[in-house]
Structures are given as C-alpha cells and as structure tokens.
Design a protein around this nucleic acid. Structure first.
Lengths: 146, 146
DNA sequence: TAGAGCATGCGAAAGCTTCTCATTTCCTGC
DNA sequence: GCAGGAAATGAGAAGCTTTCGCATGCTCTA
C-alpha cells in the first residue's frame, strides 16, 4: 500500500499523490520526466495539473521516496528510490538510459573525496555513449560523429 | 594572443569574443556562469548583451575552447578547456568546486560502457560533499544534515 | 575604401519549473 | 456522519536560464 509511504512523509494521502506513486512503480528502471508523468496520467483519465506533478515530485524527493536526475540537456527525470544507489549510462543517440553500480568506482570516489578534504555526500556519474541496440538510429555506425 | 585561437575556430575576432576569452583566462579553475561573465564584463565597462555571451560561449564550446558543465541546480558553468579531461567535486554547502582525474575510475568507466554495449563518448562525474575549509559555513560540523 | 557577411545588442520567445490564488479535498474532533 | 481548518489542487501567470529574430554595426578581403 502506497498510503503508508505518503503518510510517513508527512503528506496527506490524495489522489494525485497516489497516482504518481503508482505510475512510478510501474516504470521500474525507466526514468520519466515530469511532463511524461503528466501526459500519462491525463491519458489515463486523471484530472491533474502539471504544477501538481512537479509539486508532488519535489515533495517525494524531499521525503526520499523519489530520485531526480538532471542530464546534460538540462531537463530532469525521476524514478522511485529503490534504496540502492546507482549511476547512469545514457545513449546520446537514442536517449536510452541504463543503470549500473561499480564498487571499484564507488570506493575510489570515497578515497578522492577524503584526499581532497571533503566529506562525501552524494555523487552523480553519468556516462554518455552510443548504444548498439538494433532499435537505435546509430546502430552499426561505429564512429558516427553526428 | 587570443586572436589566434578565435581565428582558428573559424570565428571573426571581435571585442566581445576577446573579452570573454580574456576573462575566462583570468578565472583559472574557477567556474563561471554566463550571467557572471555578463555582469563582470558590464562592470568592466563593456557594452555587451547577455545573448552574445551565450552565443559566444556556445561557439567556443563547439570549437573546443571552452567546456560547459551542468550541475544539479540546473544552470551551467563554463571554464577554459585546458586540454585534459577532469571531473568535479563540489561542496554542497559553500559551492566550491575542485577538479580531479582518476585513472582507475576512467578505466572502469570504459569497461562498464563496453560491458553494457555502449561505445563510450563522454562522461560526467560530479561528487557532492562537504568541504572542510575554514571559510565554509559547514566548517567543523561533521554530519550536518541540512 | 568599399562591399559582403558575419556578429552584435536588444527585446521577444522558448522550455522547464515554480508561484499565486481561488477552490476543493483530506483529516480531526465532535 | 458532519463541520471546520489546514493542506492540496488546477489553471494560469511568472521565473529562470537560454535561444531566436532582426535591424544595425563591425571585420576582413579585395
């Protein structure tokens, strides 16, 4: 039941919040933008405003229920916080995002932070590349420069 | 002389471009936003438009003279491209940015991309932490949560 | 020195996100 | 189950950074 999580975050249980949480759950590893959530809910027959989507996502983020990532093109994507930290690898051609975790890198990051005199808090590692999926417009073109 | 670099980029040598390049040179490792550049140039008595600053920075970026980074708050900062790739570690309290390069991490990233079926292009690694500088408002408070 | 084009500055506009505010909804206590 | 107050909502306006459009100005070549 999602109610619990919402209540635990100190928020009232309302239709928009439930719907957004549900939707995020069905998304799994897929990262959605606020706009996408908005359109999906509208298509689903919900009466919801874009402002509400942003508001709710921001609250969920503050409550730790949701993670927000900003990719290089400047817009944000959201996903359920499933506990484990992970980084992202993004295809610059088709936009597909995969997640990964690498202990070696995590460890080195802690060492670097320590070395530079920082208490490590969070980090964001995004690798940009080109995927080799058949569906990707880049498929087969190894060193396509544009 | 900066003229050469501008010309080499296929751009005409104009006052705004020279001034922006000069300014970036004086910035060293300090990362400046377009807005900052604009204000600094105005304060310096230059007649310049914000649009020009963005235009020139974008051209410089395309020419490889300048690097642009987007941090989590959503706006961009710029710095001269001094050749070597590097990553960033940012203090979430005072905003200070340091640079670093780590071969272990670079290597692991290539392996991960390979493993996931991507041709690696670029990447962006930003570590967020709290610095221990005396000037930082966070100084001394080890596990300040906000 | 003159001409062709690129570059500029200004304001307007775009895209994403947040704010404002009147209205609606949730929750508590009766 | 109902009323009241606070919180949440939807719609649009406004904010932010960034880009565009266009008339004017400048750079560079001949």
């Amino acid at each position: 039941m999602e109610d619990k999580e919402i209540r635990k975050a100190g928020l009232k249980v309302t239709a928009p919040r439930l719907k957004i949480l549900e939707l995020l759950e069905t998304c799994g590893e897929h990262h959605v933008s606020a706009e996408e959530i908005y359109r999906l809910l509208l298509a689903d027959g919900e009466e919801i405003g874009l402002a509400t989507v942003y508001r709710v996502l921001t609250q969920f983020e503050a409550a730790g229920l949701v993670e927000r990532h900003r990719f290089e093109d400047g817009y944000s994507v959201f996903e359920l916080n499933r506990g484990g930290h992970h980084d992202h690898i993004v295809c610059v051609t088709c936009g597909k995002v995969k997640e990964f975790v690498d202990d070696t890198i995590e460890q080195r990051q802690r060492e670097i932070a320590e070395d530079k005199g920082y208490e490590i808090g969070d980090h964001s590692l995004i690798i940009y590349g080109r995927c080799r999926d058949p569906g990707c417009p880049n498929h087969g073109k190894a060193d396509n420069k544009d």
